[in-house]
């Protein structure tokens, strides 16, 4: 073996030697070479100093409460209607998470026999939201007020007043089933959530409605009104919108009232 070749072989062992991974026999042989090779001694010294620098790097610890924030963001992202997100923004996405949790936890989707595997992605997402809603401590101040307001109402999704429209009521359930038979499942869930919100909290409903691009609003209003008519709640929603005395609600109230009279 040439001297150079021998040096190269020992040089390849530097890292193992520094880690104490050479057998005693190889380590002794390596040390013999080291005694006569300035290059390897220099390289070993540099390697050791470099390892010291590496080991001196402090461990990166996540901030306090970060796991709760992570789980909350995940729950929101998993339930987020991605196609809608671009048009509707985060408040709707967050609220849709709440709706999906409510509807799916109540097993609505299972009762209407949606196709899919035993554990569908939507169901997993929604149940993650629900599990987190149970497991996480309530946070008083999530980032955006509108999001906070809607998320805060997650536990109150049961109909507030008799006759008020609700995605979770029995009539809402059958309307949802009919809706799902003719439309995209996610759209139906979102529509029902909108109707539920319109029946309980007009300002929040208007906030979500007006977060949509203006061009998309007439069609959505028409869809919502038709759906409300199908579940027999169009007139009740119209009355509720009027009772709010919010000028922004007048046109929508008229639309719901019109389909309710048909």
């Amino acid at each position: 073996m040439s001297l150079r070749l021998g040096h190269r072989r020992f040089r390849d062992q530097l890292s193992d030697y520094a880690d104490g991974q050479l057998s005693p026999r190889l380590a002794t042989r390596f040390e013999r070479h080291l005694a006569s090779c300035a290059d390897c001694r220099k390289e070993l010294g540099e390697l050791r100093r470099m390892l010291e620098l590496l080991h001196d790097l402090p461990a990166a610890e996540p901030g306090p409460g970060s796991v709760d924030a992570l789980l909350r963001r995940m729950a929101e992202t998993e339930a987020r209607p991605r196609r809608w997100l671009s048009a509707w923004g985060a408040p709707v996405a967050a609220a849709a998470a709440g709706l999906a949790a409510l509807l799916l936890v109540q097993d609505v989707s299972v009762s209407i026999g949606l196709p899919g595997s035993a554990v569908r992605p939507e169901a997993r997402s929604a149940s993650l939201v629900a599990a987190e809603a149970r497991a996480l401590p309530r946070r008083p101040a999530p980032p955006a007020p509108s999001t906070a307001a809607m998320l805060g109402r997650r536990a109150e999704f049961a109909p507030a007043t008799p006759g008020a429209p609700s995605g979770a009521s029995s009539s809402g359930r059958s309307a949802l089933a009919a809706c799902i038979g003719s439309r995209d499942t996610r759209d139906c869930i979102r529509y029902h959530w909108m109707l539920d919100l319109a029946g309980r909290d007009v300002p929040a409903f208007l906030e979500v409605f007006e977060s949509l691009p203006e061009a998309a609003r007439p069609r959505l209003a028409g869809d919502l009104a038709d759906l409300a008519r199908g579940s027999g709640s169009a007139t009740a929603i119209a009355d509720h919108l009027r009772a709010s005395r919010d000028p922004r609600a007048a046109t929508l109230a008229a639309r719901f009232a019109a389909v309710g009279r048909r």
Partner: peptide, 13 residues
């Protein structure tokens, strides 16, 4: 004898 030889590293495995 240089320092590295005397200070044989302990196995980290």
């Amino acid at each position: 004898m240089s320092e590295p030889i005397l200070d044989r590293p302990r196995p980290v495995a």
